[in-house]
Design a binder for these strands. Structure first.
Lengths: 138, 138
DNA sequence: TCCTATATTGGACTTAGTCCAAGTCAAGCA
DNA sequence: TGCTTGACTTGGACTAAGTCCAATATAGGA
């Protein structure tokens, strides 16, 4: 994730301890934390960081395109650092576990003109649902 | 939607003025109201109906499978009465307009085993995004 | 008509997130 | 290195969406 920090610095981001910590927390594959979870982990590294700063920083990362907002359950938004590799999500209906997945094919092409209602369609977001191995065997 | 009321009565639902009004409000194609919108329209027909009852009734309709919960924007949940005709959604990124759409193909089959992480996948939910004709021309 | 399990009500509460004025500090410049 | 300043952070108040609950009302069967 240090390349992320480099990219951000290059874009004129002022580098602060708080931003560094948020970026560190949001590292890895299959990471989908809520803002509160990010805050909790950030506090462990930098006790005085505030909720407002976590929200601000997440919002900035999202609008810079470095982090994706996903809302797979209907509760809090989750933040996905895997923004540079397009993907969809597979969610366990029981425990909420989330994996990043890459289906084959091009779902955009599967929407016929007759189903576009004159819209200019530019993007599609897919959420697969099912049971994870643990919940399926329980 | 009177067939809905019949079905519900058949399932042992006690029929009240409030439930009838909520069911009436949720009638039609391409209807995707928030709970508050449902409440506002219900109040127009039955001034003393409470927010709690609207939430209760919507929740029951969802768990009976008569109404779908969709969260296309990241704000309030929306309720979609078009539950018996499987479909996905096309959302205007600017104004939030929503249409029901039916893509061709079977997206479930497009998730290879190697991308299933041992999950039992049973369902997929797709949200197309773009600009509606009005917003595209503005 | 009466009875009672079921439904409704309104208000308090919770959760997720936003906003803001005041204080702090990173980083460019001398 | 030590200023300066505008960008960043803070905490607390605020909002929106939704849940919960104890008290009250009522649908529908006997």
């Amino acid at each position: 994730m240090s390349d992320l920090l480099e990219r951000l610095r290059g874009r004129g981001w002022r580098m602060t301890a708080q931003r560094r910590v948020v970026a560190e927390v949001l590292d890895g594959e299959h990471v989908h934390l809520t803002a509160d979870e990010v805050h909790a982990r950030a506090v462990a590294k930098l006790p005085e960081i505030s909720r407002a700063t976590v929200y601000n920083t997440l919002g900035e990362l999202v609008s810079l395109g470095e982090v994706l907002e996903v809302s797979t359950d209907k509760r809090a938004k989750r933040y996905d650092p895997n923004a540079h590799r397009p993907h969809h999500h597979l969610v366990c209906a029981r425990c909420g576990a989330i994996r990043d997945v890459r289906p084959i094919g091009n779902p955009l092409a599967d929407l016929p003109d007759s189903e576009r209602f004159g819209f200019t369609v530019s993007d599609v977001e897919m959420t697969y649902r099912g049971l994870c191995p643990d919940c399926a065997s329980a």
